[in-house]
């Protein structure tokens, strides 16, 4: 019995290891990269922070007229409230696109393909490097909370490519998101 179970387990393991995961199940519709990317964006929560919330009859809801365009440039945020010492750590703007915490103030990026204010001039590899390295354009400043880059970085190159293809397919929205604000010291610390 033990031997049979072990053999079955090894067979299953071997089958799984040899399976070509890039091939869809027979009869299934093979999604295009854009379709795959759309699914990944929706299930990975991209809209949660990159699509501003607006107050509607049912409370705050994503404003899909500004889908994935990040923190609205017209919404100048006042200084974030200073939290007293204690377990409260983070404050969030009503649009869910401005976040204040120990890292400073972050504003969610414009992910639409607008060439001046979004990802319109980005190359696929730059997008992948940004996610993989957790840094702007793969080499610059670190991506800031609440961006869950470490989790998204576990996507395969194919998935990240599909995500990028989808982001390049959505309507371009011109919206220049402000630069993040470092904690306390202002934009530049100098001696």
């Amino acid at each position: 019995m033990k031997t049979t179970t072990l053999m079955f387990a090894l067979f299953a393991l071997h089958t799984a290891a040899c399976a070509d995961k890039s091939q869809p199940t027979a009869g299934a519709h093979a999604p295009s990269p854009v379709e795959r990317g759309k699914l990944l964006a929706e299930t990975s929560g991209c809209h949660d922070c990159h699509t501003p919330l607006a107050m509607g009859p049912n409370g705050p809801a994503p404003d899909m007229t500004r889908a994935l365009s990040g923190h609205p440039a017209a919404l100048a945020m006042p200084p974030a409230p200073e939290l007293p010492p204690g377990p409260w750590l983070v404050t969030v703007g009503a649009t869910n696109t401005a976040w204040s915490g120990p890292w400073g103030v972050s504003f969610t990026s414009n992910l639409t393909p607008d060439p001046e204010t979004g990802l319109g001039t980005w190359k696929q590899q730059q997008f992948i490097d940004t996610i993989r390295n957790g840094r702007h354009l793969g080499v610059g400043r670190p991506l800031l909370p609440p961006m869950p880059a470490a989790g998204i970085a576990k996507m395969s190159d194919d998935d990240l490519s599909a995500l990028f293809a989808y982001l390049q397919s959505v309507p371009a929205i011109k919206n220049k998101v402000p630069a993040p604000i470092p904690p306390k010291a202002g934009p530049v610390a100098s001696k």
Binding site: W103, G104, R135, R141, P142, L144, P182, V188, A189, S190
Partner: peptide, 14 residues
């Protein structure tokens, strides 16, 4: 200034 900065948003090289 960015060579002298210590906060990760400003520091160069990053």
């Amino acid at each position: 200034a960015r060579m002298r900065a210590l906060d990760p948003l400003s520091r160069m090289p990053p």
